[in-house]
Write a protein that binds this DNA or RNA. Sequence first.
DNA 1: ATTACTAGTTTACGAGTAA
DNA 2: TTTACTCGTAAACTAGTAA
Lengths: 234, 234
Amino acid sequence: MVAATGVSVGHDELATLKHLALLGALDGEEKFSCSSLAERLDTSTQTASRRLQALDGAEYVDREVVSDGQWISITDAGESALQREYADYRRIFEGESSVELDGAVTSGMGEGRHYISLPGYMEQFVDRLGYEPFKGTLNVNLDDESVRTRARLSSFEPITIDGWEGDERTYGPAYCYPATVENDAGDRYEQAHVITPERTHHDEDQLEVIAPAKLRDELDLEDGSEVIVHVSEQ
Amino acid sequence: MVAATGVSVGHDELATLKHLALLGALDGEEKFSCSSLAERLDTSTQTASRRLQALDGAEYVDREVVSDGQWISITDAGESALQREYADYRRIFEGESSVELDGAVTSGMGEGRHYISLPGYMEQFVDRLGYEPFKGTLNVNLDDESVRTRARLSSFEPITIDGWEGDERTYGPAYCYPATVENDAGDRYEQAHVITPERTHHDEDQLEVIAPAKLRDELDLEDGSEVIVHVSEQ
DNA sequence: ATTACTAGTTTACGAGTAA
DNA sequence: TTTACTCGTAAACTAGTAA
């Protein structure tokens, strides 16, 4: 387990992060002072300072303290936290439990093919997804906006694929989300699933999709083909 | 000043309210137990219990404690709090700082006409809105959905009209928000403002709109005419 | 099983201060 | 002015218990 920086992010800190976002800290560095923030948050300057330290410690913001204030920008991790929150509210008020992710088909590294073929995973797919997947994953290179919005997925209740201990190594758990893949001709393949490892990587710009059939054939896809992946709740 | 019940609603309580909403407590009474909630909130059952008491005290939820749990439903005030939160996130991610409110023109009580005609208000309108309003307000009976979504307005930065002390009584402050009024023919009148008293009434189903001209003439409106009021940020 | 009280501990807070 | 430290106090937490 990688040691966290020890500073916990509670709801107060998240509310602070929301205010920073409203003040423009998502679009690059923005200058703040603890006193102005304290007024907005209706607390003391000391508490405002502590909140920023906590967000910094959790790597939700990058900041540079200067003599007359500090320059703050929200990190990708911080934005993801806000996206998850947004997804919750969208679900509450819009009933929207789907996320649309756009990108281009890529050949990827072929790792996915190896992993999903392992019996330990395959048996669970049959049991929990209701089909035996084609032995290969469709890799999608997400566009910039979708890289950001994919964080909303984590507000969904996933179908969990358990990990297990192998002979030489351990195989980690994975999360599956029902998905429909649409090509640029508007054809849709409905019975697919987005699959992501429980422990997320650093580059979240690739999406892996599994399905009972070979999606490249079903939807006439090749490298570079634009696809829309509609991810829904279980 | 009406005495609040003394229980403060912090970010922890709001997060709890969000979870209740996600679990369906907006659509009527839903049954919960503190232990199941505690698990979801990652706290102790005692804390879950206190959160619910706090939400109850703030009148954000109605609840009925029974022997094996409690029936909880979110009140209008609670839903408004969530709507304000949602509006913040929409602004962050969609850049949307506008709210669309639908309703039907009504004659109202004619109070608005009296109040806005007072010199104490009128001078501020000229100064801060940039025009002298027609001496009358367009009253709109909001439909059910708009009654709920109007809470999002309170996340906007209003144009503040100050109150003052009169000879016999005090005249309270009011908030104005730039608005465009659209009739069912699609005609739009852009230079209008929604005006609301700072101290909100209990019935929030009426919207009052002021404009430099008589909106009923400009947009060919009569009682019962459907209008769309697009309220934007200052 | 519940909810919610009381008691003891921990954590968070704001005032004051230093850099 | 800033930020962030220390410190004494106040609030919030969990454990145990009663209803």
